[in-house]
Every structure is written in structure tokens, then in C-alpha cells.
């Protein structure tokens, strides 16, 4: 019975498309679009409110416009949406708390990788003769000869 989970997108029928508010002046409108890119649309599938054609996304972008027009800074706008939808609303995860791992782990992997590579290659300073294309190795030569058969 409760399996009838319905949301805007799953419900039968369409919301009539509604026009958003007119854009603000170009400087502020750029901010609206940039902030909109970083907020997740509440009724779509993982798309930002700046990218979604859904009518609810227009409404959310209008809200961003309204907050920008009120002179709110980016952080205050993000806070408005986080207050309502949690961190789920942020397309770009915070660089703190549980999502800090997302930002740090790749750096850690890179550092470990570089250390591993440095330890497995020769020091550039080491005096070595120029490497030969084919290592002179009896065993290898035999394997090669075997394979040629």
C-alpha cells in the first residue's frame, strides 16, 4: 500500500511548465547561475537546479534569485537550502565533517603512489650505463626462443 511512493517526477501527469522570474542584472545573474549549479534539484535525478528543466527547479532557482536580490552571500544561500534538505542539497560536498574524506583520500592515494614509484625506480643520480633495449639474460633469451617455436 505504502509502496505507492509518489513524488513529483513519479506521479502521473505533468506540472504545467512555468516561467521563471526574469534574470537579474548580468553580474548578479551570473552568481545566481553559479550558486544554482551547486544546489541539487529536489524533484529530479541528481541534477542541479540550474540544469534541470523541471518546474520545481525553476521555483528553487527563483528562490536563489530572491536571496541574491536580498543581498545574501553565497554561504547564506547554501545554508537556506541545507536547513531544508540537509547536506543532500549540496552538489559539492563540504570540506569538513564526514565528507572531508572525499577530498583527502585521493590526495593520500597520490602521495602514497608517488612514494611507491620513487622507491621502485633508480635514483637519477646513480651512475649507470645507458639501459640496453634487450636485457642480456640467458633465461629470457631461452624463453623467447621457446616462444618463437
Amino acid at each position: 500500500m505504502i509502496a505507492l511512493v509518489l513524488s513529483l517526477v513519479l506521479a502521473q501527469g505533468y506540472a504545467p511548465l512555468r516561467q521563471g522570474q526574469d534574470p537579474l542584472d548580468s553580474v548578479r545573474e551570473q552568481r545566481v547561475q553559479a550558486v544554482g549549479k551547486k544546489l541539487r534539484c529536489a524533484v529530479c535525478q541528481g541534477v542541479s537546479i540550474a540544469d534541470s528543466p523541471a518546474s520545481m527547479a525553476r521555483a528553487q532557482l527563483d528562490k536563489v534569485r530572491e536571496l541574491v536580490a536580498e543581498g545574501k552571500n553565497d554561504q547564506e544561500i547554501f545554508d537556506y537550502f541545507v536547513e531544508r534538505y540537509g547536506e543532500w542539497a549540496l552538489m559539492e560536498p563540504k570540506k569538513s565533517g564526514i565528507t572531508l574524506g572525499l577530498w583527502l583520500a585521493p590526495v593520500l592515494v597520490l602521495v602514497l603512489g608517488v612514494l611507491l614509484i620513487i622507491s621502485s625506480t633508480k635514483k637519477p643520480a646513480a651512475p649507470v650505463a645507458a639501459a640496453t633495449e634487450e636485457p642480456a639474460d640467458d633465461y629470457l633469451a631461452k624463453v623467447r626462443a621457446d616462444l618463437e617455436k
Binding site: L10, M56, A59, E66, R84, Y85
Partner: peptide, 30 residues
């Protein structure tokens, strides 16, 4: 302009909000 819906963080339709005597949202039924 769905501004109230955005204020209430509606994420689908229908949704029913229950608000108590103190004006606090107690829950929503989706």
C-alpha cells in the same frame, strides 16, 4: 511561484505537513 513549497522543502506531490499548536512542524507525510 511555488515559493511556499520551496520554503517548506516540499519534494513531491502530494505531501501533508502536520504543524502543532506552537507552530512547529511535527512531521510530514509523503
Amino acid at each position: 511561484r511555488s515559493t511556499v513549497a520551496v520554503d517548506y522543502a516540499v519534494s513531491g506531490v502530494p505531501e501533508t505537513y502536520f504543524i502543532n499548536r506552537q507552530g512547529i512542524i511535527v512531521k510530514k507525510y509523503i
